[in-house]
Amino acid sequence: MRNAIPVLTVLVVLVGLWWAAVAPMNIRPALDLAERGGAVIVPEGSVQRREVSVWTLMLKNSSHVSAGYDLKRPRLPTPAQVGQEIWKTTGAMVLKGRTWSKRSLIYHSWITLQSTLWGFLLGTSLGILGAVAITYSRVTSMSLMPWAIISQTIPIVALAPMIIVVANQVGVEGRGVPKAIISAYLCYFPVLVSMVKGLNSPKPAELDLLKTYNASGTQSFWKLRLPASLPYFFTSLKVGVAAALVGTIVGELPTGAISGLGARILIGDQFGTPLAIWSALFLAAILAGLLVTFVDTMQRVTLRKMGFRA
C-alpha cells in the first residue's frame, strides 16, 4: 500500500492538469455556443475570434469559461465527462443487459482482446523459436537478426493495410487473422531479443560444468539455458503484451473495421465525437494495464515457485 501514495499523487496531478486544460481547449466552442444563444461575446463572431488567443478570450469572457466544462461535443472532455461516458458504455450497458451490444465498449474491448491474445501467442512463439534458432546456429544468427531489426523499422501503420489486403486476397474471412498477424508483428521482437539474451545468459563456467558431465546439447538447453532465460522471458512478455495490444488497435484503424477499440477511435474521429475517442482510449489503457498486471503476476508466481529469489 505504501506504493499507492506516489502513484495516486501522480494520478491526481495528471487529472488536475487535464481538468485545467479543458478551459483553454474548449473556450472557442463554448463562446460560439453562447453567442448563438444570444450572449454578448468580445470580440463578436467566431471568425474574428480566430485571430485572438485563447488566453485573451478567457480573460475578456471570463463568465463563459465555465460553459466549456459542460459542452455536448467538447474538444477536450472533462475527466468527469469521460468517466460518465465510460460508465454509460460499460457498466450501464451491463445493468441494462446489453453487455454485447454494438454500442458497448465491453464488446469492442473483447474483440480487441481476442486479437491481442492470438497475436501475443503467435508473436511470443515466433520470438522464442527465432531466439532458439539464433542461439544454436551461427547461420541464422547472422541472417535472421538483421531482418528482425529491419522489420521493426517499418512503420506498422504503413504495413497494416497491406497485411489486411493480402489476407483478404488469399481468402481469409474477417479481420481477426490479419489483426492477429499485425499484433504478432509488433510483439515478437521484444520477446526475440530478450530470449536471445536469456538463452545466452549462462556463464562460461556454467557451460563448462555441463561439458564435464558430457551433457548433450538438448540436455543443456532444457536444464540450463531455458530455465536461465525465464526471468528475461517474463520481462519481455510484459513489453510484448502491450505491443500486441497496440498492434491490434493499429490493425483496427484502417477503414472498414466496425468493431474493436481501434475502430471506435477512428469512428469517433470521423464523426467528431471526442468523447467516444477518449473513452475508447481509456478502455485500451485499462486493458493494457490488466494484461501487464496479469503477466506480472504470472512472473511472480512462476519464478517464486521455481525458487528464484523474488
Binding site: 556463464k203 563456467a205 560444468l209 564435464t212 558431465y213 558430457n214 536444464k223 540450463l224 530455465p227 521455481m306
Partner: peptide, 30 residues
C-alpha cells in the same frame, strides 16, 4: 567416461534448483 568431478571457483548452483536438485543435476544427465 566421467572420470572426474570438477569444482569451479564460484559454486555455480542453479538458483531455480534446490540444493538436492543441484546435486541431482549430473545424475539426471548421466
Amino acid at each position: 567416461a566421467r572420470a572426474y568431478g570438477y569444482v569451479f571457483q564460484a559454486a555455480g548452483l542453479y538458483p531455480w534448483r534446490t540444493i538436492g536438485g543441484n546435486i541431482r543435476l549430473p545424475l539426471e544427465i548421466m
